Simulated scan of single mutants.
Amino acid sequence: MSALRARCPHCRTLTAVAFDDVYECHSCGAVFGAGLVRVPRAWGDGGETMAEAARTELAYPEALVVERDTLDEQTDVIARGLPKRPLVLGGCCCAHIGAIRGLAARHDRLAVVWLDAHGDLNTPESSPSGNLWGMPLRMAIDEGSVRPADVALVGARDLDPPEREYVAEHGIDDDLSRALDGADAVYVALDLDVLEPGQLPVFMPAPGGLGLDDVERLLLEVASRGRVAGLGLTGLAPGADRAILEGLAAAAGL
């Protein structure tokens, strides 16, 4: 499917067409602030529930559905087919790699706000589990799509020792000003396990998280500081309230 044309969530026709940052449906006239990129795959053991949750219906035109056999293929297809302003609904956080790569190619300096209970900064050598979903932020940094100085890691509270060493060495913290000042645009990678357990059904809940109000306020703050080029929602389990997800996207200006 072309990134310029998408399926309208209201009338279900392939007549939602991209104009600048928005989609407008030629059939029913509805206007949307982003194109939906659906990535129903989780790269690790036992992630089938995350993949299932990535099929949650959202009130955004479906511009791209990516199902590939390898993470490299998935990342390449996302990066090349990304709509101008994407709302990524992924199984695991590996969906963010392609989004960051694609958006970085469009901007001189892309910042990334990564909201997650976990660091996602492992490598194949440092990972205790070997699950690729514990590595995507590190992959995006190591491939040069985003600099450590342009990353804010917010809500992380379950980092492995090598991840703690990495953030200390590279000065990565939760300071939005440090990451966003001077950036042309920002991508927000929101793993919903950043929330306090019980707020939404998530795959890897961790105590001590943020409330929904906290996340909404943070998204509003990010949007007030500059251009949100895209938002990714990942880490869900089935049964998430779609109105809450759509509300978070709206807070980010999508």
Rank of each mutant, 00 (worst) to 15 (best):
R157V: 14
V113P: 00
G81W: 05
L58W: 10
H107K: 00
R41M: 13
I141S: 15
E196Q: 05
M1I: 12
D181L: 14
A16P: 07
D21I: 09
M139H: 14
P207Q: 06
L4W: 08
P124H: 08
A104G: 02
V146C: 02
L137W: 11
L153N: 09
Y187C: 06
A34F: 01
G230E: 06
L4P: 03
L110E: 01
G46H: 14
A229V: 02
L159Y: 09
R55K: 13
D69K: 00
A179Y: 07
Y187M: 06
A117D: 07
L200A: 04
G230A: 01
V151D: 11
I78W: 01
I78E: 01
E67K: 01
E163A: 09
G226D: 06
C94N: 05
G226Q: 09
V65S: 07
L121V: 08
L176I: 04
D20C: 15
S177D: 12
R41N: 08
V188M: 10
G171P: 00
K84I: 01
D150T: 04
A206N: 11
G90S: 12
D150R: 14
R138H: 11
R41I: 15
P197Y: 02
S2K: 12
A149G: 13
W114P: 02
S126M: 07
E52C: 04
V186A: 02
L4D: 15
H107R: 01
R242N: 14
G35M: 01
V228G: 13
V154E: 10
D175W: 05
D76N: 06
L58E: 12
G90M: 04
L103P: 03
W114F: 14
I100F: 01
A251G: 09
G47M: 13
R80E: 09
Y187P: 03
Q74K: 07
E216K: 09
D191H: 08
A179W: 05
S126E: 10
A105K: 06
P40F: 11
L82G: 14
E67F: 04
R68A: 00
L176P: 04
V154A: 10
L219I: 07
Y166L: 14
D72W: 00
P83Q: 08
W43S: 11
S126G: 06
V215T: 06
L64M: 15
A152I: 11
H96T: 13
G198C: 06
D213E: 13
G198Y: 05
C92V: 06
E165M: 02
G171Y: 00
G130L: 08
D181P: 07
A152S: 12
V77D: 05
T49K: 12
A34Q: 01
E246F: 08
S2Q: 11
C92S: 15
S145D: 02
L110D: 01
R55Q: 11
F32S: 05
D150N: 10
G47E: 12
V39Q: 07
H107Y: 09
L64I: 11
A16E: 07
G119A: 08
V22R: 15
G119F: 07
L87R: 04
C28R: 07
L218T: 05
E24F: 11
Y166N: 04
M139P: 12
G47D: 12
S145I: 00
D173Y: 04
P128F: 08
L218N: 05
G182Q: 06
P207W: 10
A250V: 02
A18M: 13
N122H: 14
T13A: 09
A185E: 03
E165W: 00
E52H: 06
L219F: 10
S145C: 05
N122Q: 15
L176H: 04
C25M: 13
D69V: 01
E73L: 02
